[in-house]
Write a protein that binds this DNA or RNA. Structure first.
Lengths: 254, 254
DNA sequence: CGGTTACTTGAGTAGCATCAATCTAGGTGG
DNA sequence: CCACCTAGATTGATGCTACTCAAGTAACCG
């Protein structure tokens, strides 16, 4: 049964299910399963924009980032990936990958070759549903990310980023309050469309508010509910935002 | 043969091809074709977020916008649609539509019911490829839109918006220099993440620079190449941006 | 342990949003 | 057919968010 109740984090499930589907369907419909597993290390590349599309990858462990490059050479991070996530779905378009994937830590992936993919889509109802759902979910996430980029203040952006991460970790069965960031501050800033100094300042202000504590890459969320209210729009209008830059001056760490 | 050479605008082709695929495949594989055609008028809604997913729509004529609503009720336009575009692909995710679609003018659509969709994907190689390509292309476009929102100045955003529109029109066989905007300035501002006043000011500045002329919704591009350079990053750094707000004061319309 | 990369903090300012007022066009009803 | 009304668009003045530049500190790696 694939009729699970779908939550906000279900891309993970969909991803996990995808892999299950592959195993199931391969044996059931007697499809020669050629999906290979590989391990990569920090800063290694899975593929780059322009390379021939070979199939989809499922991230099994670790984490990665995808980025595209503008004509003038600067890079923009489009997404961070965690176990269960699908990599390379943008490759169907022109039959070559559209983005670059770099691993943020030691990670393992599993390749589903294009030919297998088509067989699986044809024969397995589960797999077909999973794949469509997974790509569809990516579109949904893109929309909400775009809305955030367009309408959120920097403070809200950082709060949202941390919450998203926390939920992601939670859905993977990890702690949602104690997390290790696998990306740099620069990566976060780039992804969220802000200056690295702003990210740093806001994280410091969150620490001053006792909302979280962060040392290097080790993040502990102290007040999850406050973080949520910082991420929502109404909350911000009066005090919080204004204080981000000035609170040191009025000297208060209540 | 679906192995066309893919250009920037090929989502149109893919959309068009999609429809062709449906017709072909339906007759060839004897699939009961239940896709219905309907006509909508300005400001009418195709579906709203949360409604049960029934299938995909292909826009045949006219134009539409999609938007999502945040918790505090404000709306954010996520995309504009033109003939050939696929509507509702985000519905696979939770089996309900995720966004709202409103038509910007009198338009017609064609529904491909979910059941038909699955049959087509199973039986028709062409249709399957088209669908995957189409969804994949949406992901690619999202990425470039996000990069634009994150890194472009307001001037670049407006320039890019117009160029995108021009290319869209061109790929539809219409003039790429004389176009009628089907959306309001407010819509453009919302989509591009800026204030409506800023959009208006920049359009005025483009007119002063003789790059384009715009009267109400009727836009004529006078210098396409200049527009392209305004949209690229390097160009902006020195003169143009600084002058956007001040050029009137120094009084010059060279 | 020197060199590089990552991060923090401060000061100054530009770009753009906001507020407010005016203008225009399209639609409606008397 | 004209006067009115409302939504859409323009233009100006002002202020704030967040970027840039700059300098210093901390962590990491060979």
């Amino acid at each position: 049964m694939t009729n699970t109740i779908y939550t906000r984090q279900h891309i993970i499930k969909a991803g996990a299910t995808l892999e299950a589907c592959i195993t199931n369907a391969s044996t059931r419909y007697n499809i020669k399963q050629t999906n290979s597993h590989r391990i990569f290390h920090t800063k290694e590349s899975l593929f780059s924009a322009g390379e021939e599309f070979e199939g989809l990858y499922i991230l099994r462990s670790g984490s990665a980032k995808s980025f595209i490059t503008s004509l003038d050479g600067d890079e923009h991070i489009t997404k961070f990936f965690y176990p269960g996530d699908l990599l390379g779905a943008d490759g169907f378009d022109e039959h070559k990958y559209n983005e670059n994937i770099l691993f943020l830590e030691t990670s393992s992936v599993c390749l589903v070759k294009e030919s297998d993919l088509h067989n699986l889509v044809k024969t397995s109802d589960d797999f077909r549903s999973c794949l469509l759902r997974s790509m569809s979910h990516a579109l949904v996430k893109d929309n909400s990310q775009m809305m955030c980029l367009n309408t959120c203040s920097s403070e809200q952006k950082v709060a949202r980023f941390i919450i998203e991460l926390s939920e992601q970790f939670h859905s993977l069965g990890l702690s949602c309050t104690k997390l290790r960031l696998s990306m740099t501050r620069t990566d976060i800033a780039n992804y969220m469309g802000m200056a690295i100094e702003t990210v740093s300042r806001i994280l410091t202000s969150f620490q001053n508010k006792q909302v979280l504590s962060i040392k290097n890459r080790q993040l502990t969320i102290l007040k999850l509910d406050t973080l949520y209210s910082l991420a929502s729009k109404e909350q911000c209008s009066n005090d919080f935002c204004a204080n981000t830059y000035t609170e040191k001056n009025i000297g208060a760490v209540y």
